[in-house]
Nucleic acid binder design. Structure first.
Lengths: 332, 332
DNA sequence: CTGTTAGCGCATTCAC
DNA sequence: GTGAATGCGCTAACAG
């Protein structure tokens, strides 16, 4: 009678226990990854029964009692935040290697966040990694019912730990590089200035340029994209300067394509060009753009350290920082 | 006494019910997205209480009884399978808009699949979308305890439905384009030939070339990557032909960079170059490569049709197909 | 319309 | 070592 109902559903631990002729508790212990007290022969019988039935534990049910779901939420604006595929590949691979799974949330806009918040369309997770700058720590904590949220978007509201690249270092190096090559005037091509990260980045550039005696003659606004780079490069405001600093590699690529003639044999003739992000441009011969990057391995390992031991990161105090560095290529 | 224990844990529906002075069932109904019978005033009290407590349902517990988790597994080899960010952005956005979440699995290798299988390191999900060609339908069904797996990797073992681009169409158009331009000899640059998709693709090229009287003088092996494209282009076997067909855009990019001089002003001089995938190359002026693509909207909408009504796709019979087409650009 | 009850699948006391 | 009993948070089924 029981078996008839069970036909279309997965075998549960009770089925395994029954087949092995032991209690559910014993079956549970034998199947546990930690070593719990079970006699050898019973353990063997349980394992055999589980194998025979093709038993797979229902992780959802398990998490109901263990209070840990082994789910990590990764929150981005768009998938395009993944433009650095290497970074995300490393991150996801590492998360999986500690036995956790990634649940993926694309928010796209602030309204979407609020909608998720209202409808509770989100699982309770062990931790949340926030790359989106539409989301604040408080909202994320409420959405996922998790106190362990790590801000990776450059926002640091003091209530949650964060790990951020220390952009000041790389920017200082890039500007120093320009100064050493006799650059006296420069333009700055910026992205979404509403973002606090971008504001900080711009401030860093200005400070370093002031320090090095480089005069900022123009500030042009893009949106990080290749197309916006082309846009500013073709605009009437496009200035004549010794150097152009961009807050993204993609914009630098667009600028380079518009001004190909300024880089005969890829060497800078009219102005030196600096990007940001250190995309794997090095792959593409057509865009040998000097840039600013950081070591992805250390960045990801800090994130994993948080997932493993969140308590080490304190009560929202910790702001872990990874150094950036200048990567010289042909365009500078 | 109860309240003291509750301090550090989320409010449950029982707390809401208590505060509202109703039974748990009533609270459950009032909070349900579907309209269940509840009197107006009680519903109001429940909603108010839930709001006051900041109640968010535990979706895990819910799915234990409803048997539906609203989780869709997306299985890829590497995140680099996401190279088509537009496609995945659309996909994930659409999945979320029907109230489901994406859980993300990177398998990387066949061994990894088996490991997941052994350890049951996977949730039961409503459906699985398989982009990885390391995974067969049977394994995925077992891993996720779901009968609804959709093969998107070109493998169609008859036990699961699939949606695949019909590459024959685009390939025929591309080869026809070459023939119309007087191409008489061609080389084929291939990717991972162990993949069934790739084999089919190669077969299509050969068939069309035979039909159009184009002689295949060389078959060079890459691995889809930009670097491998550069590799074959620099190898001693690199032939002199009227056209080069590549089974990926990235390889075509590598070839183009090595043979820049063959494309003065981006127009083909020594040979015509054809890629595959139709990456958003159009963005990058430096790589105006003719390619083969398909409409991502229809592709994604077919996937969503599966998620909404899997039964329409029959018992593993359905092989839905979306047409590909040739996208002419400067290099041909 | 409403409240009570009984599970969902699992891990975990606590006695034996 | 073992097993019966209990509960995680929620919804479905059943009576009122």
């Amino acid at each position: 009678m029981d078996s008839s109902r069970k036909r279309r559903t997965s075998p549960t631990i009770a089925d395994v226990a029954e087949l092995a002729g032991v209690s559910r508790a014993i079956a549970s212990r034998a199947l546990s990854s930690e070593s719990r007290p079970v006699s050898a022969d019973k353990r063997a019988r349980v394992l055999e029964a589980a194998d025979k039935l093709g038993f797979k534990p229902n992780l959802l049910a398990r998490s109901l009692t263990t209070k840990t779901v082994n789910l990590i939420a990764v929150i981005v604006n768009h998938i395009h935040d993944f433009s650095d595929l290497d970074l995300f590949d490393l991150l996801i691979s590492d998360i999986q290697s500690i036995g956790k799974q990634v649940i993926f949330l694309r928010v796209g806009s602030v309204e979407r966040i609020e909608e998720f918040l209202r409808n509770g369309v989100a699982y309770h997770v062990d931790a949340a990694l926030v790359f989106s700058d539409f989301a604040d720590a408080e909202s994320v904590r409420k959405m996922f019912r998790s106190d362990d949220v790590l801000m990776l978007n450059g926002m640091h509201d003091g209530s949650s730990p964060s790990v951020v690249p220390n952009e000041a270092i790389g920017i200082a190096e890039a500007v120093a590089d320009a100064a050493s090559k006799g650059v006296a005037t420069a333009a700055l091509v910026t992205g979404r200035v509403s973002s606090p990260v971008e504001q900080q980045r711009i401030a860093n550039y200005k400070a370093e340029m002031a320090k090095r005696g480089i005069r900022l003659v123009a500030e042009l606004r893009g949106d990080y994209s290749y197309q916006s780079g082309r846009g500013v490069a073709q605009s009437p405001e496009w200035p004549t300067t010794d150097a152009v600093f961009c807050t993204s590699d993609a914009m630098a690529m667009g600028i380079m394509d518009v001004h190909r003639d300024a880089f005969p044999g890829n060497r800078p003739e009219r102005f030196r060009l600096y990007g940001f992000d250190n995309l794997s441009l090095t792959d593409f011969e057509a865009y040998p753009i000097s840039s600013i990057g950081y070591d992805k391995k250390t960045y990801v390992s800090e994130i994993l350290r948080f997932l493993a031991t969140p308590e080490q990161f304190g009560n929202g105090q910790a702001e872990v920082t990874v150094p950036t560095f200048f990567v010289p290529r042909a365009t500078s």
